[in-house]
Amino acid sequence: MSYLAKRKFYYSILLISVIVLLLLGIFSLFVGTANIGFLDVCRILASKLPGIQKLVSTDNIRGSSADIIIKLRLPRAVLVILVGSGLAAVGAAMQSVFRNPMAEPGILGLSSGAGLGATIAIVIGLDKTVLGLSAAAASAFIGAIATVFIVYNISRTGHRISPTVLILAGTAISFMNSAVIQLIMIFRRDRMDYIIMWTMGSFSSPSWNKIAVLLPFLLPGLAVILFHARDLNIISTGEETAKTLGVEVERTKKFVLASCSIVTAACVATSGIIGFVGLIIPHLLRLLVGTDQRVLLPFSIVGGAAFLLVCDTLARVAAPPAEIPVGAITAVFGSPFFIALLIKGKRSVM
């Protein structure tokens, strides 16, 4: 297949993937702990669609069922799709910027910064809501951005930022944030449960509000990352080389990392720390569609969304009435993959 035909082929596969994702999303509306019949779900959904709503009667369906579908399952599915797409795209972009296949959205200390931000809000006992988000979520967002800001400035020499120093600084600050969280928990035992609960990450309290808060960060962020897809390809082959190929390397890195940080911070603030999506999805897709970011990024967006949606649906229905934290499910899927990747990597070295 010729060079361009191959990409066209991938884009048609992508279209199919989007359709599959939508079907998965619709499917997730039909399952849950509350027992709502298939036809009832259809009727509830149909009753909300303009045009045919008059044709559908929901008279003998319990009012709570409609609430469950429209106000719980639907926003949850949307939220999961958004967060999954954001984290996976950020992971793919960061792996290119850092030229490191182990890079993931938390690498700049974002997750730990968000955790610390949330912890501080929880301990201070802020219970205001900001833009429909809890104080903990807003504070988590600020914590994540503040952490990246610090990490970035540590790593900056003049106009240049070294990816290696960024990763090291991110790791160091992560450890420091974690240590501070631990200390706070020791001194504020009474708040410990809340802190742990926050860091576990979950979609159990979805709302349209959260989606409305997430979107203005997520969409522009993803747009900026996609905008730089070709530059990311070139940067992933080496920064100096990228410069000689006409890429404004430092500016691209700055824009992409800032977008990655904002997207991650918004995702983490609305749903806690959800590991692995940002690491394994880009890798899995690299094996399937290759490493060209112009193809990989859109696939990551769709794939991350689909993966997280499946994980979250499992989390909801696997052990009723309890909900398994979605982070546990992603890790259960993620860890074996990660290990397989390591083993495969080892073989190719030998």
């Binding site: 938390g106 997750s111 955790g115 742990i196 860091t199 990450g201 590991g275 982070g327 546990a328 890790a331």
Partner: peptide, 23 residues
């Protein structure tokens, strides 16, 4: 339970990606 929570919390924070173990 606090005792258990402490252990769980430490694991949670250290291995933040695996945070779900504490659940």
């Amino acid at each position: 339970k606090i005792g258990l929570f402490t252990i769980a919390a430490f694991i949670t924070v250290l291995v933040i990606a695996f945070n779900a173990c504490a659940s």
